[in-house]
Simulated assay, not measured.
Amino acid sequence: MTILRALLCALALLTLAGCATKFRGYDGPQVTRVLLFKNDRRLHLLHGNTILESYDVGLGFAPEGHKQFEGDGRTPEGHYFIDKRNPNSSFHLSIGISYPNRVDVARATAMGKRPGGNIFIHGRGPSYQKGAPRDWTFGCVAVTDRQMEDIYAMVSDGTPISIYP
């Protein structure tokens, strides 16, 4: 009987371990706005005027200035919103930023270029767990995988995001 109990306990523990997930719950105040200050490398999640959480971030590999066109390595500046999420991101989890807007498209077109897109807030994924440079993305905003789990749970699609120099 003791061996049977030990086996049942081991089976129960293995089952619980298999339930571990990157998807976290959140039952706190709604995030009503996201602010990113590029110079400070800080991302803030706000409810009204109250900061709920703040994170250090990495940016595009050419962090100075507003994104002008595809491949320039810059993180956009301006007012956007969270428009999608990717639970199967190569960078753990990700939530999309609505870049480019009409102004971004017009600016890039005037230069004879494409504006680019697929700008996300994302984790590091398996390739950048250790030793990642500070600014290494192609224009996205990077946080740790654990932080991304919290952000993914807290920030809903449609949430405005303002990105400042």
Rank of each mutant, 00 (worst) to 15 (best):
M1L: 15
I3S: 10
I3H: 04
L4I: 12
L4K: 09
L4Y: 09
R5C: 03
L7R: 11
L13C: 12
L13Q: 04
L14P: 00
L14F: 08
T15E: 07
A17E: 08
C19H: 13
T21W: 05
K22D: 14
K22R: 06
F23T: 05
F23Y: 08
Y26L: 03
Y26W: 09
D27N: 05
D27M: 08
G28T: 08
G28Y: 12
V31W: 12
T32D: 06
T32R: 14
L35T: 02
L35I: 05
L35A: 03
L36C: 09
L36G: 01
F37E: 10
K38T: 13
D40R: 12
R42E: 14
L46H: 14
L46E: 13
G48Q: 11
I51K: 15
I51W: 05
Y55E: 12
Y55D: 12
Y55Q: 14
D56L: 14
P63A: 10
E64N: 09
G65K: 02
H66D: 10
H66G: 00
K67F: 01
Q68K: 07
F69C: 15
G71L: 11
G71E: 08
R74E: 06
T75F: 00
E77L: 14
E77Y: 00
G78L: 00
F81A: 10
K84C: 11
N88E: 06
S89H: 10
S89C: 07
F91T: 00
F91I: 01
S94R: 06
I95Y: 05
I97H: 07
S98F: 00
Y99S: 01
N101I: 07
N101G: 05
N101C: 02
R102E: 08
R107A: 13
R107E: 04
A108W: 07
M111V: 00
K113T: 02
R114T: 09
R114N: 13
R114F: 09
R114Y: 06
P115E: 15
G116E: 11
N118A: 11
N118C: 14
I119F: 05
F120Q: 09
F120D: 03
I121N: 13
G125K: 12
G125I: 12
P126S: 15
S127T: 10
K130C: 08
G131F: 02
G131I: 09
P133C: 06
D135L: 04
W136L: 10
T137A: 06
T137S: 07
F138T: 03
G139W: 04
C140V: 04
A142I: 01
A142D: 02
T144M: 02
T144V: 02
T144I: 13
D145F: 14
R146H: 04
I151R: 15
Y152R: 07
A153Q: 05
A153T: 13
T159P: 00
P160W: 05
I161N: 13
Y164V: 09
P165V: 00
